[in-house]
């Protein structure tokens, strides 16, 4: 029996069959690849933390293969902690398990409920504090890690990453030349009070706390500025409390 391909029945039948088949295939693939993706994400997280910690030459040598090993060398996850918006330590939370990107997306979560993980590393006998940050770029989320020196004020290293910023423009926040602008800057003043950063067009001749932005990537650069300013504040409060206690 010849099938009438132009009939409504056939058209609907084809559409339904197509949706079922495509849905099943995609769901299967997503499920089958999930364990691999989860491991990749974990390695990536460790890789970014180590990259923020190490100086430029060494952090360039970090890749997915040696990330776990290097991470274990410097960072002790037992020292890691979680604080809240006001810089108070939260008990009973695993810092590494906290997905700040997910929390940032979650509109139902109030600022007070958000978790702020802090990783403490030891490198060459000195402590270093690694703070994960998350914010918004032009097209999607941006995130990164800021590493503070043992004085809890000076930026020692940083990584920035993004989901879908324009290649060659906003996407350049990943590059060393942009990160370099942040190094050595102080996040807080002598009393431990947070001071805002500003990403500017041309920093030549200006004072501290000004970072060179990216040509053609102004919105992403401003996104990094907002991200760093917002995410670092709870930590400076925490450090301030810590120093006052001593």
């Amino acid at each position: 029996m010849a099938i009438n391909k132009e009939s409504n029945g056939y058209t609907f039948g084809f559409a339904i069959a197509m949706v079922v088949v495509v849905g099943a295939v995609l769901a299967l693939i997503a499920m089958a690849t999930k364990p691999f993706k989860d491991t990749n994400d974990e390695v990536k997280k460790k890789m970014d933390i180590v990259k923020a910690l190490l100086p430029k030459d060494e952090s360039e040598k970090i890749n997915r293969k040696n990330a776990e090993e290097e991470f274990a060398k410097y960072v002790n996850l037992e020292n890691a902690l979680v604080i809240d918006l006001n810089g108070k330590k939260k008990e009973g939370k695993e810092a590494f398990d906290i997905d700040i990107r997910k929390e940032n997306r979650d509109k139902t979560l109030s600022e007070e409920d958000k978790n702020y993980p802090l990783f403490i590393a030891e490198i060459e006998g000195k402590k270093a504090y690694i703070i994960p940050v998350v914010g918004k770029g032009l097209w999607g989320p941006i995130w990164g890690n800021v590493c503070l020196d043992e004085d809890m004020r000076t930026i020692k290293g940083a990584t920035f990453d993004h989901k879908g910023e324009t290649p060659g423009l906003g996407a350049e926040i990943k590059q060393a030349f942009f990160i370099k602008g942040w190094l050595g800057e102080k996040v807080s003043n002598e009393d431990g009070e947070f001071e805002k950063f500003e990403v500017v067009k041309d920093k030549s001749g200006t004072k501290d706390k000004k970072i060179d932005g990216i040509t053609g990537g102004t919105i992403t650069s401003k996104g990094v500025e907002e991200m760093v300013n917002r995410c670092l504040q709870p930590y400076t409060k925490y450090f301030q409390n810590l120093n006052n206690k001593i």
Binding site: V25, L26, I29, A30, T33, F36, K37, N40, K44, R64, W139, K163, G164, E165, T166, P167, A171
Partner: peptide
């Protein structure tokens, strides 16, 4: 499909491709 497979097995390429 391409994106899922890359994310699982070639994560570095996948990051470049995502956009």
């Amino acid at each position: 499909i391409v994106n899922e497979l890359l994310a699982a097995f070639l994560p570095d390429v996948s990051e470049k491709l995502s956009v």
